[in-house]
Simulated assay, not measured.
Amino acid sequence: MPIKWYQNWFSSPYYHILYHQRNDEEAELFIDSLCALLKPAHGCKMLDIACGRGRHSVYLSRKGYDVTGIDLSYSNIKFAKQFENEKLHFYQHDMRHLLFINYFDITLNMFTSFGYFESERDHVNALKSFRKSLKSDGVLVLDYFNTEKIIKNLARQEVKHVEGIDFHLSKKVNEGKIIKTISFEHKDKDYHFKEEVKAFRLADFEKMFRLSGFTVDKVFGDYHLNSYDPVKSDRLIFICRKADV
C-alpha cells in the first residue's frame, strides 16, 4: 500500500519545527479545564489517541492518572518512551484497530488528530475502536478545529520563518478536505509535504458518533471550555458518553 501523507509528515522532524508553538502551557490549560469538568478519580485510566510526542499524556500522568498513549509514528513513540513510568506507557498503534477492550475510563483525541482517512467508514471504525476501549460508563473527549471558521478565514498563501527555515504554506478546500501543502528548502535540499484533513462540521460528527455508539454530552468551542460558536470559536470539542447499543 502507498504511504499516506500522515505517515510521512508526522514522523518528520520538520513537523515539530513548524508547529513548535504548540506549547506545553496550551496543552496543560486544556487538560486542567477538562479535569475540572470531568473530575476523574485519582488513578483513573486514560487513553491518549494519536498522542504525538506525548505532551498531553505526560501532564496527565503527573496529575496522578494512569495513562496510555498510542500513535502511528514510530519516531513519535520512540521520543515519548523516555517519559514512561509505571503509570505511563506508549505504543505504536493505528487508531482504527482495537488495542484494549472495556479498559479505560476516559479516551482523548486531541488537537485535530482525526479526519485523516478517505472514507466515512474508516472514521466510524476508528470511533468504534475508541468506544470498545472504554468501560461501560466511559467518556470520549474529541478536539477538532472549527471547520466553519477555518474555511471562512482561509489564508491561501503564507510563509512562516522558523529556526532559519522558510516554510511556504498553501491552503485550499477540495472534495470535502482542507488541504495544506508545505514546501521549504533546508541544507540545499527541497522538501514537500501535505496535510489533508476532512472538513467535518458539527452535523458530520453527530452522525459519526451516532453510528459508532456514542451520545454527545457537551460541545465546547475553545480550551477554556466556552460554548461553541460556529462563527467565532477556534475549536470544536466534544464530550461524549459510551452508549448502550
Results as ranks from 00 to 15, higher is better:
1 M>T: 14
9 W>T: 05
10 F>I: 00
14 Y>Q: 02
15 Y>L: 06
20 H>V: 12
21 Q>I: 14
22 R>C: 05
23 N>V: 08
24 D>K: 15
24 D>G: 09
25 E>F: 15
25 E>Q: 14
29 L>N: 15
33 S>C: 07
34 L>D: 02
35 C>W: 10
36 A>R: 15
37 L>H: 13
38 L>N: 03
38 L>G: 02
42 H>C: 10
44 C>I: 07
48 D>S: 05
49 I>T: 08
52 G>N: 07
52 G>S: 05
54 G>D: 00
66 D>K: 14
70 I>W: 01
72 L>S: 11
72 L>D: 08
74 Y>N: 10
74 Y>R: 12
75 S>N: 13
78 K>L: 12
81 K>E: 10
81 K>P: 07
83 F>P: 11
84 E>G: 03
86 E>K: 13
87 K>C: 10
92 Q>W: 07
97 H>D: 09
98 L>K: 13
104 F>L: 02
106 I>H: 04
111 F>K: 04
112 T>G: 01
112 T>K: 05
113 S>R: 04
114 F>Q: 07
116 Y>T: 06
122 D>W: 00
123 H>I: 06
124 V>L: 06
124 V>E: 05
124 V>M: 05
125 N>G: 06
127 L>W: 02
128 K>P: 00
132 K>Y: 15
135 K>M: 09
138 G>K: 01
139 V>Y: 07
141 V>W: 04
141 V>G: 01
142 L>T: 03
148 E>Q: 12
148 E>R: 11
149 K>W: 04
153 N>C: 07
157 Q>C: 09
158 E>K: 15
160 K>P: 00
162 V>A: 04
162 V>P: 08
164 G>S: 05
166 D>Q: 10
169 L>S: 01
169 L>D: 01
170 S>C: 11
171 K>C: 09
171 K>L: 10
173 V>C: 10
177 K>I: 06
181 T>L: 05
188 D>H: 15
191 Y>G: 05
194 K>R: 13
210 R>D: 11
210 R>S: 13
211 L>K: 12
211 L>T: 00
216 V>I: 14
217 D>C: 12
218 K>F: 09
219 V>Y: 04
221 G>L: 02
221 G>H: 04
222 D>R: 02
223 Y>E: 08
225 L>K: 05
229 D>V: 09
229 D>H: 15
231 V>Y: 12
232 K>T: 14
233 S>H: 07
234 D>Y: 14
234 D>H: 15
238 F>W: 03
238 F>S: 04
239 I>Q: 02
240 C>A: 12
244 D>P: 03
